[in-house]
């Protein structure tokens, strides 16, 4: 037992000399009459012990307070057993409570000693530690029954379906767009028709080619070959050959 414990307090009283825990054990075993034990002297001995130690161990002090308070309560009830029979069960209750608490605590102490001895006997045991690599963490106990199993299964199915979709490999290939050919294409369409919409000019081309065609239009506008107008944002873009567009302001493409 650690010397800091209140239970290890050495007592030298008239009816008893020895450690505090032995005193408690004797009282509990009926080997010592609690009526004879001067509890005040026990407290004085503890205070003297504290002063000698020079420092206050809160854990030990609170342990002592609880034990001494329980002891004192029991003693008071024993000594002042009143004539009224009504109060007797109260005294018995208190005694029973103290007995139950002390007996329970004694077993906890015995279990703690077993653990301590076990630790000393097995020595330091070192093993791989950390989050489990092979198993998911153990579920928290009170999680059981909080969810609808069907809903959980449905959620899992959704996740698995999604992860299957995501798992499909997509190869992104570098694509070469025939920019010069598209430049010629736009130039030709505009010069042939004199005026046409961008949508008409790129009909039949795929997205990438349409984007490249738009770049071609901008290049032609920059070069002064083509003029474009757009009446509203995202509206149709009209293109005309620059010679036919002298009277029109050059519009900005969307």
């Amino acid at each position: 037992m650690a010397p800091s414990s209140a239970l290890a307090l050495e007592l030298d009283l008239e009816p008893f000399a020895g450690p505090f825990d032995l005193l408690l054990a004797l009282v509990l075993r009926d080997a010592l009459d609690l009526g004879e034990v001067p509890v005040a002297d026990v407290c004085l001995a503890y205070l003297a012990d504290l002063e000698a130690a020079g420092e206050m161990d809160l854990e030990s002090a609170s342990e002592f307070l609880v034990l001494v308070a329980a002891l004192l309560e029991l003693k008071i009830r024993l000594l002042l057993a009143p004539d009224e029979v009504d109060d007797m069960p109260d005294a018995q209750e208190a005694a029973e409570e103290l007995a139950a608490r002390l007996a329970e605590y004694a077993r906890v102490q015995a279990a703690a000693r077993w653990l301590e001895e076990r630790l000393a006997a097995t020595g330091p045991r070192l093993f791989r530690d950390g989050p489990p690599a092979l198993r998911p963490p153990r579920p928290v106990l009170d999680d059981a029954g909080t969810g609808d199993p069907q809903a959980l299964a449905g959620a899992l199915a959704d996740v698995m379906a999604r992860s299957r979709e995501e798992a499909e490999p997509i190869h992104v290939l570098r694509r070469r767009l025939p920019l010069l050919r598209l430049l010629d294409h736009v130039r030709r369409v505009v010069s042939e028709r004199g005026s046409c919409s961008f949508d008409e000019a790129v009909r039949g081309l795929d997205r990438g080619e349409q984007a490249a065609a738009f770049w071609a239009v901008l290049d032609l506008v920059r070069g002064g070959e083509v003029a474009v107008t757009q009446s509203e944002p995202f509206g149709p873009i009209r293109m005309r050959a620059a010679h036919a567009a002298h009277d029109h302001a050059t519009g900005a493409a969307a």
Partner: peptide, 8 residues
């Protein structure tokens, strides 16, 4: 408990 009760 029984001892304490008896003692009381």
């Amino acid at each position: 408990r029984s001892r304490l009760v008896a003692m009381a």
